[in-house]
Design a protein around this nucleic acid. Structure first.
Lengths: 346, 346
DNA sequence: CTGAAAGCGCTTACAG
DNA sequence: CTGAAAGCGCTTACAG
């Protein structure tokens, strides 16, 4: 009557193990494992009885044990290297995060959210990744000179970027919306609706969106035979305040502008405020085009004409590329088309 | 010369193990492990040489192995049971998510993001949690009748809610802003600045914010000796469109209202649009008070007077409570004060 | 097709 | 204070 006390945590019931399943099904643990791996080299009879046992017992594989032997974690990191404020303020990114979570869940892969916005965080994340705690990383920042990149390379971890990685040598897989074509669509729209002095508020020039959307602006002007006036170009930091300041600057420099293509909706709401204060009506005096089709675009007065990025498909493709990389496939790149959404501001 | 080929994944270098550290330090693996656990019952000399070896080798513990023996995952889930759109559109929640990630990182605990907005997702999440893949969960939805709750209870997993869980028996630990007091501050502000026909657009009545903020509204009117006119109360669904519809309804029912307390900034932007279309000036004809102090509050025209929720502290406290629960402490509750932010709309 | 066995990298009583 | 050893729950050659 003095049995050794069973080992217990504060959880009452221990989940069934592969051992229980094997006993229930009347086979060896090896066979159960083979069924778990896809059922190759398993007789139909064994397959069936194992599956029945799994259902009956409600068996779920213990990932820690599997991970220990396979040297695979079975999870993926979603890594933010932006200063956090910027990311979390940007509704695009939350859409992206949601999409990646869902897409990974379909493969039963948990998403681990990590931030590396400052030095201590970067150290922690680097250690975590180097220790092999994830099989790959979905990387969101595309600022050039990203200090995490070197670490990732050293850890030899599969990575997929959101947005074209700037200033990187080698082939780094990424998924991006077609920023340049999106910008071109917007500027064409402005021109086609009769605007002639079209300014632009570009994003930071160390980000792909900042660079590409400005390229698009220039290309369309050229296309229409309009000489590019550098005075019509201002740069913001993707924040609302940055957009506001840039608009003030533009108004001062080029009082007769009649349209502005703003590289993000958030900046566009700032531009709207500046125009309002300057007594310019939108779209009467000045047409305003945004980029992103974020909630802010709808909430703005007037609602913003903007460029929609296909975030659902971006996240889907990021996950697809990452899983392919993890499986050993070659790096690839996916560029997805954008869509012009015409509302009241232009 | 025929050594067995070393086992390899596609990663080149295998991280050092506790075995390597023990060899380097000249002690047993047990001693290394004891150092890892906090260094109790370890001689100063051993402690030092083990730490030196850890540094030299860049050793990082293998969580899968640890988890296998301790029966603890060392990670925590951040679980969204809202229909996803709502969550990800709400900037409060992303702030919360960020805060929780950071707070957990300080304890070296990875945050696993999970969504359970529909039935297949709920099944998957339930299996994952029941399998013991996380030590606890941070739960965000507070809609009453949440179908995940029962599963969590069955799995005997520590849980902390964000927001007061409605209609739950038993003591469930939660952290919330003081919704009622926040609402009272706003309504008092409206009344103190001379408004007399103060309407409200409440949130859904199956959410704590929806209920509590409406309570606050009623209480202040009573406090000021103003009889509550039920016609002045409308309910929205926290969306922009819902706020707009509710405002239209109120305007129709009570054309002479001169203020409205809206239970979220997002709904308030909708209300602003409706007022604009009805030709009412804000704050001239109608004062508008929001709730949340989200980015939308700043972007709104005019910028919204609103109630700020202390999201940083909320996330911090949620993590603290959850870790305490995991460590076996009793359930507790934390209510945090809000702050009135006066801008232009009221 | 299947079982027995080794081993993944840790932690934790148990002796000493 | 410390080492030897068992064991956590899996996967995977290896024989058969």
């Amino acid at each position: 009557m003095t049995e050794p006390a069973p080992r217990r945590t504060n959880r009452t019931k221990r989940p069934p193990t592969i051992h229980d399943v094997a006993a229930e099904a009347g086979v060896s643990r090896g066979t159960v494992s083979r069924v778990l791996q896809g059922g190759h080299n398993v007789s139909p009879a064994a397959l069936e009885s194992v599956n029945a046992a799994i259902r009956k017992l409600g068996y779920v594989v213990n990932r820690a044990a599997r991970s220990l032997v396979t040297q695979r974690s079975g999870s993926v990191a979603f890594l933010l290297t932006e200063p956090q404020e910027r990311f979390f303020e940007d509704p695009n990114f939350t859409t992206l995060l949601r999409g990646c979570t869902t897409a990974l869940a379909e493969h039963d892969i948990p998403l681990i959210l990590m931030t590396a916005g400052n030095e201590p965080e970067r150290r922690r994340v680097t250690r975590y990744l180097a220790a092999g705690h994830v099989d790959g990383v979905l990387l969101v920042s595309s600022h050039s000179g990203n200090p995490m990149l070197e670490h990732l390379r050293e850890a030899e971890l599969p990575v997929v970027f959101c947005g074209k990685p700037l200033g990187q040598r080698g082939r780094i897989p990424y998924v991006a919306a077609d920023d340049r074509e999106g910008a071109k669509d917007m500027v064409r729209h402005l021109l086609d609706t009769g605007r002639r002095r079209v300014a632009t508020i570009a994003g930071p020039q160390d980000t792909p969106g900042g660079v590409e959307r400005l390229y698009g602006y220039r290309e369309v002007l050229q296309e229409y035979g309009i000489p590019v006036d550098e005075g019509l170009i201002a740069v913001g930091d993707y924040s609302r305040a940055g957009g506001e300041a840039a608009m003030v600057e533009l108004l001062q420099r080029v009082p007769d502008l009649d349209a502005v293509f703003v590289a993000s909706d958030l900046m566009a709401t700032g531009a709207l405020a500046a125009l309002d204060r300057a007594g310019r009506s939108v779209p009467g005096d000045v047409a305003v085009g945004g980029f992103d089709d974020s909630p802010a675009a709808l909430a703005a007065r007037p609602p913003l004409t903007t460029i929609r990025q296909p975030w659902d498909r971006i996240s889907e493709q990021m996950v697809r590329l990452l899983l392919a990389r993890i499986a050993g496939e070659e790096p690839a790149t996916v560029i997805l088309p954008t869509e012009l959404i015409v509302r009241d501001s232009a």
